[in-house]
Amino acid sequence: MTDATAATGLLALHETMAVIRRTEKAAHDLFMSGLVKGTTHLAAGHEAVAVGARAALRDGDYAFATYRGHHHAIAWGATPEECLAELMQRSTGLNKAKGGSMHLTKAGSGMLGSYAIVGAHLPMAVGAAWSARLRGTDQVAVAFFGDGATNIGAFHEALNLAAVWRLPVLFVCENNFYMEYTPIGSVTAAEHPAAGRAPSYGLPAEVVDGNDVVTVRDAVARAAQRARAGDGPTVLEAHTYRHYGHSRTDPAKYRPDGELERWLERDPLTVSAQRLREAGTSDDDIKAAEDRAAGVVDEAVAAARAAPEADLSEAFTDVWADGGAAWRT
């Protein structure tokens, strides 16, 4: 790859990260103005993990995400308009206003859901990888999860089964150092909550800078190559940081003074902008990409606001595969 094409590719990743950042800001602001209900778990700060991973994977690969999953949905092709409309309970929402912030899903492009029971989707990703093997494809499956998920049983059951069946699955931990409100180190008997457990299952693991989209992309590419070659699963632990609290109601006052500011110096968008400049991309081109992202999200907010409310008939659809909800004769 030449420097120029590498820079072009990186500029596209930078722009996608900017779209996610703007979408999260919009979700936050719309919540404050009463247009987003329920709760949100914003991923501002985590963008590089989703965008870097998607860049390393192919169409047809599978992704399973968590309740903090807006960035994965967008990285896998969901539009900000679909996502914000879902959060705003509009009929045009990504999940027809039946899922909400915690369950954004773009199944058509392989993003098979955001799950809000911690750790539950790791075995699902193992199953999708098993399915790929059974069907004789070279697809891989990725489970994204937080550091908190590494202390739940499903994490360990999933790693063990994936290891003994040598399945093409990637376990990507977004270690943001807090399980909800509690520092992960204070409740975990391993220094690296995900990577530190991998050796006991005979799995290769890497700890990577989760705020550098290029580092994430390259690590995921290595893991995917290993998986497609039949060499089994990999555990990646990407260090990152959330800019907002755990959820909408959390002002994150438990964080020590200066911690957020230190992480903001390593903001994924700052890191990628620096890499772009080093590769010869002009400040004007970087700004143009960020302006395009802002424009897309501004239009998405307007469209979602103007969209009709949830269609009431949808309350009784989609329970069964026939589209209905009948439970009796």
Binding site: M124, A125, G127
Partner: peptide, 17 residues
């Protein structure tokens, strides 16, 4: 590993099996 059994079945069912 009952969670892995049923969870893996779910993932496989969502992807063509």
């Amino acid at each position: 590993s009952e969670q892995a059994i049923v969870g893996a079945a779910m993932g496989a069912a969502m992807t063509g099996m």
